[in-house]
C-alpha cells in the first residue's frame, strides 16, 4: 500500500486531500448539529432598545412586533420616537449600518405628553380605547384626563377625539430635568464656539 503511494505521488496527494476533506467535512457537519442556536433571544434585546411608546409609526402594532420584524431583517430606521440615538443603538447591537431615520414613518420630535382640555371633553371614551398604555382615566359621560407620568406621547389619542380636545404638549423642562447640554461641535467649520455660551434673557 505504502509502496504504491510512494510510486504514485499523484495518488498520494489525491488521497491526502480527500482524507483532509473528509475529516474537515465531518467536523463541520458535527459542529453544525452540536452548536445549533436555539430560539431568538435577539428580539428581547431589540425590544429593550425600542422606546416602547407603542405608537405604531413603524407600521407595526406596537414595539415588540417591530422588534420581531427587525430581527427578521426589516430596516432599523422606522422608529421616530427612538430617533437617531435609537438607530445607532440598534445598529451597534445588530452590526448593521447606521442609516438616517426614514421620514415616511414620521420625524423625531421632542418628547411630548398628551393633554386633555378637560372642560371640552365630552366623555366619549374613544381616547381611552386608543391609548396603548392605559394612561387615560375616565368613564363614559365623565370628563377624562391623562395620567402624565404614564403617557408615552404616542399621540394615538388625538385623532379619535371627536371634539379635538387633546393636545400634544412638549414635556416641560423642570429644575430636576434641566442640565447642561454637550458643547456644540457640529459647526466647527463655519464658526468656532468654545462652549454654549448663550445669553440669558
Amino acid at each position: 500500500m505504502i509502496e504504491l503511494l510512494v510510486q504514485h505521488p499523484l495518488l498520494a496527494a489525491l488521497l491526502a486531500l480527500v482524507g483532509l476533506g473528509a475529516v474537515f467535512g465531518a467536523l463541520l457537519g458535527y459542529a453544525a448539529v452540536r452548536f445549533r442556536t436555539e430560539g431568538n433571544p435577539i428580539v428581547e434585546q431589540i425590544n429593550a432598545i425600542l422606546p416602547q411608546t407603542q405608537c405604531g409609526q413603524c407600521g407595526h402594532p406596537g414595539c415588540r412586533p417591530y422588534a420581531e420584524a427587525i430581527a427578521a431583517g426589516e430596516d432599523i430606521n422606522k422608529c421616530p420616537p427612538g430617533g437617531q440615538a435609537g438607530i445607532e443603538a440598534l445598529a451597534q447591537l445588530l452590526d448593521r449600518e447606521v442609516v438616517p431615520l426614514d421620514d415616511e414613518h414620521g420625524e423625531e420630535k421632542v418628547p411630548q405628553v398628551a393633554f386633555i382640555r378637560e372642560d371640552e371633553c365630552i366623555g366619549c371614551t374613544k381616547c381611552i380605547q386608543a391609548c396603548p398604555v392605559d394612561a387615560i382615566l375616565g368613564a363614559a359621560k365623565h370628563m377624562h384626563t391623562v395620567i402624565a407620568s404614564e403617557c408615552t406621547g404616542c399621540d394615538l389619542c388625538v385623532e379619535p377625539c371627536p371634539v379635538d380636545c387633546i393636545d400634544m404638549i412638549p414635556q416641560a423642562q423642570t429644575l430636576q430635568t434641566w442640565h447642561w447640554e454637550l458643547p456644540d461641535t457640529s459647526n466647527r467649520g463655519a464658526d468656532i464656539i468654545a462652549t454654549d455660551a448663550g445669553e440669558a434673557a
Binding site: 447642561w180 445669553e199 440669558a200
Partner: peptide
C-alpha cells in the same frame, strides 16, 4: 443687561 451663561 444680558448676563453670560457658561459652565464653571
Amino acid at each position: 443687561m444680558a448676563l453670560m451663561r457658561v459652565t464653571s
